[in-house]
Design a protein around this nucleic acid. Structure first.
Lengths: 227, 227
DNA sequence: TCATTAACATGATATATATCATAAAGTGAT
DNA sequence: ATCACTTTATGATATATATCATGTTAATGA
């Protein structure tokens, strides 16, 4: 019986389940499933019925929507963004797809369990409301931010997003292709590649395949702000 | 004592407060304030502290964000979209501004009261989660929809949005200026005006100042879908 | 009422970005 | 190792949209 559930030590607990006590946690965890995905794997498919309450335990995912044969990337999310929840209370079916862009582990809770917990534990309900609000806010604000910039500013913004928000380092491996950056910022692949090459020529960044190093951050920030 | 509160007959109750009983409602309403705004009035100012839980009882508002001297319109909301809630649980200060674009009435509840109700009434908490999810979803989906279209498609989309979603009629008075349409779809004012003139010349719409009549809806829908 | 400003309108031109073309380098499968 | 395929790369050209200019009309305020 013992170790089917490690939630008590779960790194997410303090943030996500702040106000959930051990008994409640155990009851959630009884019906919990943890799943691993490799980079590139589809985690959630648009249109599929929502049967679980999913959060990202580790890794990195992209949230996107298909329109025709094109993908529109809505956001790149790391743990605690738990974007998969966005539609979870409002819809029966997923409105977006989620794909792992790094090896990822998700934790799936029974959705009815979570709803029951919302009903019975008011502090958890408030926590959840706050987190949902924050996730939605971030996506909306980020999208406005990108929208008001031009090509160069958008790309600078995305590079800074990875450096500061995702990897906390000026050197990192891009987890997505240039094409995907294009799908995120709403520009063409060629222009993403071209602009990154320009940044390289202007000695703002170094490029080595997927590896990016920001070597003139103040300038990149300026491009992001003004471009 | 009697009639300070009409919430029991409030049209919103069935949707918004489905699961709130009379006693709870009365306790909310004791601290409720109803406020009227004229077209053009500022209802909520970005940066101001969030002290109330606001929903739109009647009218029409625009939700927008300032960047420099420019306004970016996030969404046009009618009652039951109650957009003002979007940040309410996640932030202490408003991240957006809200302005009446038609005469509007809002209902302001004490935010602590609402939080208490979330804690004590699980069904209300679930309702609120669902509604927050839906509002966020709509804004995100709408924004993606607009993003993937070109100028003509975006304008067709906006005209259909007013005709179908807001006014339920092929003839309506635009509540916003061409400049504001531009701020909503991320294009310039001149191009909005020009494109609407083209639609007029192509006999897709009739224009009489602010009054718009859609006279070839199938074509407008086609432009929205393909443009 | 007139003056002032904002909204609407339209054309000419400039500019940013998309599209098309081509190729090298990387990746995965057989 | 080879083949097919995707990604990265770069240049030339086309196109969509922004910018600039100018005028008219409608709204707003003293």
């Amino acid at each position: 019986m013992a170790n089917y559930c490690e939630c008590e030590g779960c790194e997410l607990r303090s943030l996500f389940f702040n106000n959930v006590n051990k008994t409640e946690l155990l009851s959630l965890c009884t019906l919990k499933v943890e799943r691993s995905f490799e980079r590139g794997d589809l985690i959630v498919e648009e249109g599929a019925p929502i049967e679980e309450f999913i959060y990202l335990k580790s890794g990195l995912v992209k949230l996107y929507k298909l329109s025709g044969d094109e993908e529109q990337i809505i956001t790149i999310a790391k743990p605690l963004d738990f974007v998969s929840l966005l539609s979870v209370f409002a819809n029966n079916h997923y409105k977006y797809s989620v794909r792992a862009i790094e090896d990822s582990v998700i934790c799936c809770l029974n959705i009815q369990n979570v709803k029951d917990l919302v009903k019975s534990n008011g502090n958890f309900a408030l926590d959840l409301l706050e987190k949902m609000n924050r996730v939605a806010d971030n996506i909306i604000l980020e999208s406005l931010e990108i929208r008001r910039k031009h090509l160069r500013g958008r790309i600078a913004h995305v590079l800074l997003y990875f450096a500061e928000y995702i990897y906390n380092s000026n050197e990192f491996d891009l987890p997505i292709s240039r094409k995907e950056i294009a799908e995120y910022i709403g520009m063409t692949t060629e222009n993403v590649i071209r602009t990154m090459s320009e940044f390289r020529k202007d000695k703002v960044i170094k490029i080595n395949g997927k590896t990016i190093e920001i070597i003139n951050k103040p300038l990149l920030e300026k491009i992001s702000a003004l471009g």
